[in-house]
Design a protein around this nucleic acid. Structure first.
Lengths: 213, 213
DNA sequence: TAACCGCAGATTGTTCAACAACTCTTGTGT
DNA sequence: ACACAAGAGTTGTTGAACAATCTGCGGTTA
């Protein structure tokens, strides 16, 4: 007996808002008026506020009391903090992970997805696949909690991506690196793969900070 | 001009519920009926639901759709996961932290608080001080995000504490270890302190798992 | 002119009442 | 004993209302 996963109005509103932010339709800093969103989303103000609450907890929205909720915009310091945490989580997960084919499969499919999207020139899809790749790295640790936190990190980072003027420069360089890291891990040298990943992340941080508006 | 931090009804309800859970007045597994809580908390159902949302995101409550919200009860697997993450976060933060007196001060005050509470026989306060000690360890990393996550971990762990039959056995052994770890860190040997901390945590995990109801 | 003040107008925070959708229990029939 | 339908109770969602707070505009004063 499989649970049917009925969405529910609030969950649907959360999903729509999250997608709108990730797709760049809601730029960081945008103010989300309660009354003017009840129409398009077809939900009541109370339900909308509940949706806001969960997105605020996820860090995608920010509430300024009595002024409204805004799409979060990451400061350089916050981005640096995210990368500090990423280095910690991802390198630990990768270096301590035993090398076994089933676990490597998740990495490989993410790498392939990124390659296909890059060939098609769809840089937003490349970004999505890249983030999925890093989520798979953390998944090597086998901790549901770390998985959840990592998803939150990637979601917030995408807010910085959509604000960037040059998506190709942001995602192009890392497709090959993903491949190299995965190959090294598949070859059994997890520690060397973790070292490559650390350099990767420091480079990525510079690129992202350099692409801020 | 300092912001006055007006609580707001929702935030006040969150605070009351959280305290009630940490103090053991709401045992894990308890069902929280919406209608029967609007009275004591003096808030409307909608506001109460907003409070539930934040506590659910914090992991202290669990929602079963159309059935209600329940005080979270940690399974042994979840506790093991929490400790896996704690080892990762705390040991990393401690080993990579430079030794300087202002940072050590936070640790030392938490240790002293625990010692005083232990002398007074107030084991719940000892547990609180212990958790504060570990939050201070993570604070050595200087990452607001890790601080936030660590607070969440300690809050959830307290749910396991209140369900334990013997609080003294749960907290007594670790006061001295806190002191030893802090002294080692103050002496400049952060790596050795991190090793001690790892053993500490593995011991603590066994104690907590052994004290499950 | 420029700075300050106060007053509408709009928006958020919170409450209340109602109804739909769903779950659990109870009682009935076979 | 088992299946099933009716009922009661709870959650999910909506809409309207009011208080508290912020914003922007216009007027006053130096």
């Amino acid at each position: 007996m499989t649970t049917v996963e009925k969405p529910g109005s609030a969950a649907r509103a959360v999903e729509q808002l999250r997608n709108a932010m990730i797709n760049g339709e809601l730029a960081p800093g945008t103010r989300l008026s309660e009354t003017s969103l009840t129409g398009p989303l077809k939900v009541s103000r109370n339900t909308l506020r509940e949706a806001f609450s969960t997105l605020i907890e996820e860090g995608l929205l920010v509430r300024q009391p009595h002024r409204g909720v805004f799409v979060a915009s990451l400061s350089p310091a916050q981005i640096a903090d995210i990368y500090r945490v990423r280095v910690l989580l991802e390198c630990s997960a990768l270096s301590q992970a035993p090398t076994d084919p089933p676990r490597a499969a998740g990495l490989r499919t993410a790498v392939d997805d990124a390659g296909r999207a890059a060939s098609a020139g769809d840089w937003r899809a490349v970004g999505t696949a890249n983030m999925h790749f890093h989520e798979q790295i953390v998944a090597l640790a086998g901790s549901p909690r770390l998985d959840s936190w990592m998803r939150q990190l990637t979601a917030e980072l995408r807010l910085a991506f959509v604000a960037a003027p040059d998506p190709e420069a942001l995602h192009r360089p890392f497709v090959a690196m993903n491949d190299a890291i995965t190959s090294t891990y598949e070859a059994g040298d997890a520690n060397r793969a973790a070292d490559m990943l650390r350099d990767y992340l420091l480079t990525s941080e510079r690129v992202v900070l350099g692409n801020l508006p």
